[in-house]
Simulated scan of single mutants.
Amino acid sequence: MKKALKVLMVEDDPNICELVQLYVEKEGYQFITRYQGEKGMEAYYEEDPDFVILDIMLPEVSGWEICKEIRRDNPLVPIIMLTGKGESYDKIRGLELGADDYVVKPFDPNELIARMKAVMRRANLLDATKEKIELNSLTIDMKQYKVYLDGEEVVMPPKELELLYFFASNRNQVFTRQQLLDHIWGYDFDGDSRTIDVHVKRIREKLNTDSLKWSLKTIRGVGYKFEECPNR
């Protein structure tokens, strides 16, 4: 018998937790909830969940801090952030820390379930096409979900790695921000296109070296291109 997917929700509003629990369990998933940040972190390590839903504003430890800690421990477990503010800063910061998606309160539980399935579906699609790309001193290993530069591992959250892999798989092609959002985050993602700028900036910072024979170029007014530079 297939093991039920285990979902951990860290949210300080019991009413929201109870409502989400009804929908999550209806999908056949196991539901675990904690109302405080510190308790949420303890549950993460004790329960080893397959999916995490994090509120940003939590007692003791914020959702942002929990997200950072989870990503240090496991770069692959899907994370959806909940924000009551709906401000671009909250959304971008959550995605920058490694969250896969976000939902703004108040939300329809059906939307949350749909976004959870979208995140899982994209992960499954990646499972079917994992490969290794080697470019000069850069190696992108999708089987292990790891990036290496000059033989040293460069730690990247899933979305940064997936974006880099997509660029490297489509060298010398120009993509708009919306095209990149569609390919990496999915067509149902309605977030800010600045999400792409944040991820590109972090990729550049982590792989900043003059020895590379490629560059991640900004095409003004359009988007980005992964360009090979054989003369370097």
Results as ranks from 00 to 15, higher is better:
residue 103 V to I: 13
residue 122 R to W: 15
residue 153 E to F: 05
residue 168 A to R: 05
residue 45 Y to K: 07
residue 210 D to C: 06
residue 94 G to T: 10
residue 1 M to K: 00
residue 25 E to Y: 03
residue 76 L to E: 15
residue 195 T to Q: 07
residue 157 P to G: 08
residue 88 S to N: 07
residue 207 L to R: 03
residue 220 R to P: 00
residue 104 V to P: 08
residue 116 M to E: 09
residue 194 R to C: 01
residue 137 S to K: 03
residue 64 W to M: 06
residue 84 G to R: 04
residue 53 I to D: 10
residue 186 G to E: 12
residue 45 Y to W: 12
residue 139 T to A: 10
residue 177 R to N: 11
residue 187 Y to K: 09
residue 71 R to L: 04
residue 115 R to W: 11
residue 60 E to K: 13
residue 187 Y to R: 09
residue 1 M to L: 08
residue 214 W to H: 06
residue 232 R to Q: 12
residue 48 D to N: 11
residue 25 E to C: 04
residue 4 A to D: 14
residue 170 N to E: 07
residue 158 P to G: 07
residue 224 Y to Q: 02
residue 78 P to D: 06
residue 219 I to G: 03
residue 21 Q to Y: 06
residue 83 T to D: 10
residue 35 Y to A: 08
residue 57 M to Y: 10
residue 195 T to H: 07
residue 175 F to A: 08
residue 161 L to K: 12
residue 18 E to H: 12
residue 174 V to I: 11
residue 195 T to D: 11
residue 111 E to V: 10
residue 13 D to F: 07
residue 200 V to I: 14
residue 116 M to Q: 06
residue 2 K to E: 14
residue 26 K to S: 08
residue 102 Y to T: 04
residue 152 E to L: 03
residue 6 K to L: 12
residue 229 C to K: 12
residue 100 D to C: 05
residue 115 R to C: 13
residue 86 G to M: 05
residue 51 F to T: 02
residue 27 E to L: 01
residue 105 K to M: 02
residue 156 M to E: 07
residue 17 C to D: 09
residue 43 A to I: 04
residue 205 E to Q: 10
residue 148 Y to N: 02
residue 169 S to F: 03
residue 198 V to M: 01
residue 16 I to D: 12
residue 62 S to D: 11
residue 186 G to I: 10
residue 182 D to S: 08
residue 217 K to F: 04
residue 91 K to D: 09
residue 222 V to L: 09
